[in-house]
Amino acid sequence: MLGTNSASNKLAKMIYGYWQSQCLYIATNLGIPNLLQSGAMTVEAIAEKTSTKVETLYVLLRALAHLGVFAEKPGRVFAATELSELLVTDAEPSLGHFLLHITEPPMWDAWRELGGSLKTGEVAFERAHGKNFYEFFMSENPDSKNLFNNAMSYLTNQAIDSLFEVYDFGQFDTVMDVGGNRGSLIAHIVKKFGCKGILFDLPHEVEIAPAFLASQGIDSDAVQVVGGNALEELPKGASAIIMKYFLSVFNVEDARQVITRCREALPPQGKVVLLQTLVPPRGAPVEYPDGTIPGLAAVQMMVTNPGGYWRTEEEYKELFSTSGFQLEQVIHTGTSLTVMEFSKKS
């Protein structure tokens, strides 16, 4: 349709990209990957289970079969594949939850406002919805909040083994996760290394944390749960502070303020362990082996957060340096997650 040379093919894949993601969203939102776990089904049976029209559903499923998400068998029968199994959402946090969070309608509405926000400086999400991302998702839309929580837990679970292979959190007596949501990361750390934990996030973010931590087998005295605002004050008592993707939501001025609060909360030999996907410098590979393209993800952050975006290693180094920290080491985990360890300047 768009030409046969490699350049036009590459652009065609980009142009058709949203068709694919929307087909994935609809099928996953209907629970079709869940249904096919128990065996192949006719399109008629799937339509009955999902309250959809047979013929229109068939067109959607056929497209996804052509993409390898489902397998189509004779008689308009569809079966699960390795891809669809990754989209199952009726068990533990999965790529399906991440898909549903990233592609649900409120997110699409925000991206539609990106062009206007470039001209006005407004946040695209706020242009679309009249309120910020966290008010909309976390306070007023519980289903979207649940998707977000599961999506973040999925990202943590995917990276955790590689992280623990290269970084020893057992060197610290107490680790505080700032911006840790319901506590997926701190639960992994406490269980693996036997240290104490502190979970810090906004009060409405940590409401469900005690129940979640208990469900992960974490004793109530192993992790202290604290609600507050990282721009204002952080609790003391930790020898290390971890922040996973947290600084991405802040503009430069607010990010420096958060880092300053970290400095105030830590003892003289305390460390900040930043867990972040770094935007590569010019000339470096732009895509990680897991498919993450940080430069593109940075646009997503900009769409949803005022001044927030994914940064380069040098940008993070500068942020911390101007807030009283020095970079000790950078450790690549083999995934899109990188460890940057900072100590206080003397």
Rank of each mutant, 00 (worst) to 15 (best):
Y25W: 15
M107G: 02
V258P: 09
V69W: 03
M138F: 10
A298K: 07
F320V: 08
L57Q: 04
D168A: 03
E48C: 08
Y167V: 12
E165V: 04
G3S: 06
A238Y: 09
E315T: 11
L275G: 07
I242Q: 09
D161R: 09
P294N: 06
L83Q: 14
S117A: 15
L327G: 07
N34T: 11
T312E: 08
C195H: 09
N29S: 15
K236F: 11
K73Q: 13
D90Q: 09
Q269S: 15
I32R: 06
G227K: 04
Q326N: 12
P306W: 00
K317F: 01
A214S: 14
R263N: 13
K119N: 10
M138C: 10
S153D: 09
A63T: 12
T304I: 04
F164R: 03
T81L: 03
S184H: 11
V206L: 10
T322L: 15
N181V: 03
V303H: 05
Q276R: 01
Y167T: 09
A159F: 06
A151D: 02
V175K: 02
V279S: 08
F70T: 01
E44V: 14
K345Y: 02
Y134Q: 08
D221C: 07
W108H: 11
V54H: 03
P105Q: 02
T56V: 07
S215I: 04
H204M: 01
L11K: 03
V190P: 01
L87E: 07
P268V: 07
Q20D: 13
G68D: 12
A159I: 05
G307P: 01
A240L: 08
Y316L: 06
L213Y: 02
G291F: 03
T42P: 07
D254Q: 13
F78Q: 05
L275E: 01
P93E: 06
A209E: 04
G39V: 08
V279N: 01
Q300L: 05
E207V: 10
R182I: 15
Q158K: 15
S51K: 12
Q171E: 14
K13Q: 10
K131R: 15
T304H: 13
